[in-house]
Simulated assay, not measured.
Amino acid sequence: MYIPPAFREEDPTLLHAVMREARLASLVTATPDGLLATPLPLFLDETEGEMGVLYGHVARANPQWKAAATGDAMAIFMGPDAYVSPSWYATKRETGKVVPTWNYVAVHAYGPAEFFDDAERLLQVVTRLTDLHESPRAEPWAVSDAPESFIRAQLRGIVGLRLPIVRLEGKRKMSQNRNAEDRAGVAEGLAASGREAERASAALIPRGGD
């Protein structure tokens, strides 16, 4: 990922937060026949390894888990993003020398993809993923709510993924390269948006200074 110095994010705590808040990631692997990618939910176990370990699962029918990988896999996590209109810049009124851009937060996690089909490990992964996304609900559903025989049959249709992270790249492009007046204009414009992601982006734009 191309990351100009102004947009580089290296704080592991912040990178992990972006990964936890992303509801869907993309797993990308390079193979002798080309790139393969699968959108899937992942959870981060920060207690394992130096940078943490990602877990998830793919369909057994998905050819990605069978294909021999060339090098490490990459998991892509996207945070808030927003189109930035030049009309929000104070510079537009002063010189007119402005163009549109896009603000966004992204994290790329690299590591060897390890696939497994042990039923007990799969059950643990499915249970943790389910609990993670069901916990905010008033009446959360649990894997144990379904008949055990049914769950065991479902597990035979998936393959588990373990990805120990060996490298993290983070990019937070939130108008840091603009002056204070331009940043304030972008923040105000995005804060008034009807899109949740754009309002979230407004809160990430640095204010003050120059």
Rank of each mutant, 00 (worst) to 15 (best):
Y2F: 14
P4R: 09
E9M: 10
E9H: 06
D11K: 10
P12A: 07
L15G: 04
H16K: 14
V18H: 05
M19W: 02
A25K: 10
T38V: 15
L40F: 06
F43T: 05
L44I: 06
T47S: 15
T47L: 12
M51P: 04
H57G: 00
A59K: 00
Q64W: 00
K66C: 12
A69T: 08
D72I: 10
D72Y: 03
A73W: 02
A73Y: 04
F77V: 00
M78D: 04
D81N: 11
A82H: 03
S87I: 03
A90I: 00
A90Q: 08
T91K: 00
G96F: 00
N103H: 09
V105A: 06
V105E: 07
A113L: 11
E114W: 11
E114Y: 00
F116K: 04
A119L: 12
A119W: 03
E120R: 14
E120A: 15
R121V: 02
T127A: 13
S135T: 14
A138P: 00
A138L: 13
E139Q: 13
A146H: 12
E148R: 13
A153H: 14
G157D: 11
G160S: 12
G160T: 03
V166H: 14
A184C: 11
G194V: 02
E196T: 13
A197C: 10
A200R: 15
A202K: 02
I205V: 13
P206V: 06
G208H: 05
